[in-house]
Computed example of a mutant assay.
Amino acid sequence: MRQGLRDVYITGAGAFLPGDPVASADMERYLGQVEGRASSLGRRALRWNGIETRHYALDPDGTHRHSGADMCAAAVRAAAESAGESLAALDLLATATTQGDLLVPGHGVQVQAELGVGPLEVASFQSVCASALMAAKTAWLNIRAGEADTAVAAASEFSSRWFRPEFYDGSALIDAKGRLGMQADFLRWTLSDGAGAVWMRPAPSPQHVSLRVDWIDMVSLAHRYDPCMWAGAAPGRAHDLTGGWSAKGPQAAFEAGAIALMQDFTLLKTIIRAWIGEYLKKVDAGRIIPGEIDRLLLHYSAKSLREEIIGLLDSTGGMIDEDRWFNNLRTKGNTGSASIWIMLEELFAARAFMPGERILCIVPESGRAMVGFMHLTAVAPEKETRP
């Protein structure tokens, strides 16, 4: 008979970044030139997002060196090694991605197959960035309820495959001057590839500092906003599925520009304020106390968005001192759902956490106004006791 709810700890973290870092000057060599011409937006996008290096899972000729599933599996293996555990101990694999390697089946079973472990329980989440915390909440609650003893939450993104010229050439996304529209072109200069994972157990590690998962909250505001980042519908028509791939078929949808990944930047400006509003609700309720947060891991897609967020927090009294913020966007790129785990892994590998520290992770996503919050507390190693 189970005895109440258990504490849950992150005892290891892993990351996988494919290939060597790619500098900004080399990006278009990997992504290719749409309609055979250099992007007129690229330099401006890079100034906006502040990314200096990123990683791609494909070669300059478009050849895939990895799959989303094998990158995710590599991050899970790294998390197991970080925790000092065996993959055979896994009871639950919870995965996240924006789009898996196949339309069907789900990402989770593909990752399990790459790992070669099982039988075990699998959960797959497909959204955008916040899907990482959807997976983490599933892993956390299963261990907390005694349904699993060892779980991993993992995420991977293979964004670059969306950005090759064949996704755009000859479609309605190309204007009369042969240029790719901003809704699509901007994301080519913002997103990159990678994977991350965290290992969870109902006891802290006996060897190193662990992170107790205190709570995870997810908030969707989809009832208030249209899609802000989407694929599968025509430009400016994310709310109208009659012109999308599921209604017209892939060829007609491609010609209409309904296959590529796109972003509504006007709507994004509005949604940023909505994310801040959800954060401030938690501050007002006492669930988040800014002065007690020792580290803030905030996922954002651009340096300019960080500056906008800081301005909003300063003006509302919800600011966490900027010297407590950590983000590796500049060097690791924006890896979507994997970003929060790639951040956490960098600090975990550096043994940067001190017992007693409170860590707040915030992951907003522009897919359709979702935001996730995770509160962690660093705890000292605990001597292992065996019967």
Rank of each mutant, 00 (worst) to 15 (best):
W341N: 03
R368V: 14
A145K: 01
R237Q: 15
E28Q: 07
M354N: 13
Q207Y: 07
R164G: 06
G36I: 04
R43V: 10
R351E: 15
M374L: 14
S192K: 00
I309L: 15
H208A: 14
C129I: 03
L221M: 12
V363P: 06
G181T: 15
N142V: 05
S301Y: 03
H299Y: 04
E382G: 03
R144E: 13
A15C: 02
G249A: 03
H223W: 06
P60F: 00
E307A: 06
L103Q: 12
L221G: 12
S210E: 10
L312N: 02
A256E: 15
G336I: 10
A234D: 07
W140E: 14
V198F: 07
R287V: 15
D26Y: 00
E52N: 04
V104A: 10
G318M: 08
V213E: 10
G336D: 08
E384S: 11
L93A: 06
V8T: 08
L173S: 08
G194Q: 08
A96Y: 05
S315C: 10
V379H: 02
R295N: 10
A378N: 07
E35W: 03
G277D: 13
M354W: 07
S86H: 06
K248E: 15
G50V: 03
I309N: 02
C72Y: 00
P381T: 12
V283E: 08
L120R: 04
S160N: 02
N334H: 12
Q33R: 06
L90G: 08
A113Q: 13
M374G: 08
A25Y: 04
L92F: 06
M218N: 12
G62A: 09
A135G: 14
A69W: 12
K303L: 13
I309M: 13
G277Q: 08
F348Q: 14
I359F: 03
R324G: 04
Q263H: 09
R65K: 08
G317A: 09
S156K: 03
A113D: 15
Y9P: 00
P60A: 02
K281N: 14
F125K: 07
T266I: 08
F373H: 11
E384I: 10
M319H: 13
L211C: 10
Q126P: 00
I143T: 12
H375E: 15
V363N: 07
E85T: 11
V198Y: 03
I143W: 09
Q112C: 01
T95S: 10
G291Y: 02
T385Q: 14
G108T: 09
S127D: 11
L103A: 11
I289H: 04
D7L: 02
Y30D: 05
T316I: 01
A184F: 05
A74W: 02
A38H: 07
V152Q: 05
